[in-house]
Structures are given as structure tokens and as C-alpha cells.
């Protein structure tokens, strides 16, 4: 792939979000390939290096895109992860498809809310997640899957998610509905495996623990004082 094509691929991915292509479609280096279960398709989306992705904004004190009802939306994503991640010891992608009631059964546990309020919050949240590529929501069949953006979570993220998964109640699944309930057949998940955010030539992963970041920051501060305004470096802390 030449430089002009590469530039177009990155820009197109930014303009259109994750895109579904035929499995053989060549994509530039640095792109994630997430295989679609059942179909010969593949999701292609850029994978940013560990120190250059949207996750570093928090550490630098900048804000990313405004998310409406951020907490409801984040909780809905947690519910979808709980329902769709087939096996928390295995890669998260592609997960399985579940119906809306199943997701709601987990989402409902997040607060004692009137059903109408809950439904409105849940519908808003799932649409926002669908718009951002975090879930795939089928409006006609009312079923939900994990979206391709979930493939950009790295190992450190998955560790946190696993803990979250275990802390959540299992979904109540409609019993007769076998159709959605099964894990997709074993696929070659090599291409869909967890991206590696950290490279040898770059500093370590973002620390997961805020306190740890702050502590390393204090240490860093001593020698950074004479180096004016080195924004960013101290944020990432010592390589783990």
C-alpha cells in the first residue's frame, strides 16, 4: 500500500468510523482487522499506538468528545459487555448476539428506576453506543452485539473489564430462545486478537490507577522543574 492510499485509509476511517469490508481487503499497517463471525467480512479500524490514542486525553487533562448522559451510556456498555462477552478468559471480539431484554436485565440492576425512565435511558444509551461503533444494534430484530470499537481495548483494559464482568449479575436469558444464545463457531481469531498498544521503542502503558500516576508524577516533578512545561511526559509515569 503506497503512502497516498495509507493516508486515505486513515482519513476515511476517521470520517466514517469503523467500516466493514470483504475479508481479503488490504488495509494499511496499523489497522485492526476484526473478523465478522458467520460472514466472510472483516471490520477495519485504525489502532493508535499506546501513547497516541484517545485514552491518553484523561491523563493530560483534556476532554474528548462530549457524551450525553455519559454515566448511563457507560453503564449500558458495561451491560452489553457482560451479556455479549462469551468467555472473559478469551478475546472479547466478536462475542455473541443477545436480545434487548437480556441486556436490560443487567442494565436494570444499575438502579431502582421506574420502567419508563429506565427504558428511555436505555434506548438513548444504546443508540449513542451504536452511533459510536461500540455496539451493533439491530433495530428490527432488537438484538445487540459488541461493536468493532471494543476491539481497540488492549490487555490492560481487558483486565479491568474482566473484573467488571465478574462483579455484574449474570443476565436473565429467555429460555426458549436458543437462536441468540450460542457462541459463534470457532473462528480464526488471530486477526481479531487484542491489539498491542505498547511497543519496545515507546514508553510504557498508561497507568490504570490514578493514584499511581499521581505518585510517579510527584517524583517526576523534581527533575522536571528545570525543564519548563514538558507536558505529557510525566503523565505516563514510569514504564510499568
Amino acid at each position: 500500500m503506497n503512502t497516498a492510499d495509507t493516508a486515505l485509509w486513515w482519513a476515511r476511517a476517521r470520517a466514517l468510523g469503523p467500516a466493514r469490508h470483504e475479508a481479503g481487503t488490504p488495509a494499511p499497517d496499523g489497522f485492526l482487522r476484526l473478523l465478522e463471525p458467520h460472514a466472510g467480512d472483516v471490520w477495519l479500524l485504525p489502532a493508535h499506538p499506546g501513547t497516541a490514542g484517545p485514552w491518553v486525553l484523561d491523563e493530560m487533562g483534556f476532554s474528548g468528545p462530549t457524551i450525553e448522559q455519559p454515566n448511563d451510556t457507560a453503564r449500558m456498555l458495561a451491560a452489553v459487555v457482560r451479556c455479549c462477552w462469551t468467555d472473559p478468559e478469551a478475546p472479547i471480539w466478536p462475542g455473541r448476539e443477545v436480545d434487548w431484554e437480556t441486556v436490560l436485565s443487567v442494565y436494570r440492576t444499575f438502579g431502582d428506576r421506574e420502567e419508563s425512565v429506565l427504558n428511555r435511558a436505555a434506548t438513548g444509551a444504546i443508540r449513542r453506543l451504536n452511533g459510536g461503533g461500540w455496539v451493533l444494534w439491530d433495530d428490527d430484530r432488537r438484538v445487540v452485539r459488541l461493536g468493532p470499537r471494543c476491539g481497540t481495548w488492549v490487555n490492560a483494559d481487558l483486565t479491568v473489564l474482566r473484573e467488571l464482568y465478574r462483579s455484574l449479575p449474570p443476565p436473565e436469558e429467555p429460555e426458549e430462545d436458543e437462536e441468540y444464545g450460542e457462541t459463534p463457531p470457532d473462528h480464526d481469531q488471530g486477526a481479531g486478537s487484542t491489539p498491542v498498544r505498547d511497543q519496545a521503542n515507546l514508553p510504557g502503558p498508561p497507568a490504570d490507577d490514578d493514584d499511581a500516576v499521581d505518585a510517579s508524577m510527584m517524583d517526576a516533578d523534581a527533575h522536571l522543574r528545570e525543564v519548563p512545561a514538558s507536558v505529557g511526559e510525566e503523565d505516563r509515569g514510569d514504564p510499568a
Partner: peptide
Amino acid sequence: SERHRDEVLAAYAAVEHSWQ
């Protein structure tokens, strides 16, 4: 240098992903 490389990557992340 390694330090400047980090600065550039951090600035890349900031300009690309920051809302403002």
C-alpha cells in the same frame, strides 16, 4: 530524542482526540 518523541506523540494524541 526520547523525550521529544514522547512530546510529539502526546501532542499528536491531544490535537487528534481533544474536543477543543
